[in-house]
Write a protein that binds this DNA or RNA. Structure first.
Length: 254
DNA sequence: ATGGCAATAGAGTATTGA
């Protein structure tokens, strides 16, 4: 089974890209972030027609997450039961015995800001929930836009980004603590080319210059990591007309 | 130091993203 994550930066705008990408990459599970749609506007029919079930949790203008699956989705949970949040950033479901969480971690805007405090508090609560889920589900994966570059090798210019949002010590520590529950970064299970990123700024031709960050991740429980035989970032849709600023990350589970 | 670019809401420009 292939599982993937993609921040589409508006599903309304990116639906054609989503369908084009799924046609070429018929993954079994796809987690979406930044759908930016209220649930009444979600394009269920188009996604069903592409061969996918879908569950979603959205809001106007900002945030919004969804899980697409070729196989039945069960036990759907919206939001973190340990954290009251008006922002729609989390949805969970079970597919073929694997517990899946789709996460859109807050951006944080700037170190020291109110949004940064929200990001860290939100992430702390996420760890509590994920700890519970891991106790229940041996086969577990949490995929999404973490808005955190784990290490300097995940950053095009570590000196420029040092201590900045997405790269600050507290953010990286929070991600390490989450992994400390027994999760591994699927991407780093394998030899990878250098300078692999999942997001590039729209400005200053950042994509063409490969000035990016690796901030979209697939974290796997130990049991699922043993079944993982590949993890890749697909840069292709970032080259298309009017792209999302993020690209998909795909893990292959056997 | 600031803006660059894109999407949204909504009607000129502000907010957010990363």
């Amino acid at each position: 089974m292939k599982i993937a994550t993609w921040n589409v930066n508006s599903l309304k705008v990116r639906l054609p890209h989503l369908l084009q990408w799924l046609a070429a990459n018929p993954v079994d599970v796809l987690c979406l972030q930044e759908t930016k749609l209220t649930d009444d506007k979600f394009p269920v029919a188009e996604i069903n027609a592409a061969g996918y079930e879908v569950v979603f949790s959205g809001q106007k203008t900002y945030n919004g997450v969804a899980i697409l699956s070729r196989l039945p989705l069960a036990d759907v949970v919206r939001n973190n039961p340990y954290y009251q949040d008006e922002q729609q950033r989390l949805i969970a479901a079970t597919v073929d015995g694997v517990r899946i969480i789709c996460a859109y971690v807050p951006n944080g805007q700037a170190v020291g800001s109110d949004k940064y405090a929200y990001k860290l508090g939100w992430f702390d609560a996420l760890r509590k929930w994920v700890g519970e889920e891991l106790n229940i589900h041996e086969q577990f994966a949490i995929l999404g836009d973490y808005n955190i570059a784990p290490e300097d090798r995940d950053v095009h210019d570590p000196e420029l980004w040092a201590g900045q949002i997405h790269c600050s010590d507290l953010e990286r520590e929070a991600l390490r603590e989450l992994c400390g529950l027994g999760l591994v970064d699927a991407f780093r299970l394998f030899e990878q080319p250098e300078k692999q990123y999942s997001w590039w700024d729209y400005r200053q031709m950042a994509f063409r210059r490969n000035r990016g960050l690796r901030i979209d991740h697939i974290l796997l429980s130990q049991a699922l990591a043993k079944r993982c035989e590949a993890c890749v970032i697909d840069r292709e849709p970032r080259k298309w007309e009017q792209p999302s600023d993020h690209t998909p990350v795909i893990a292959t589970i056997v």
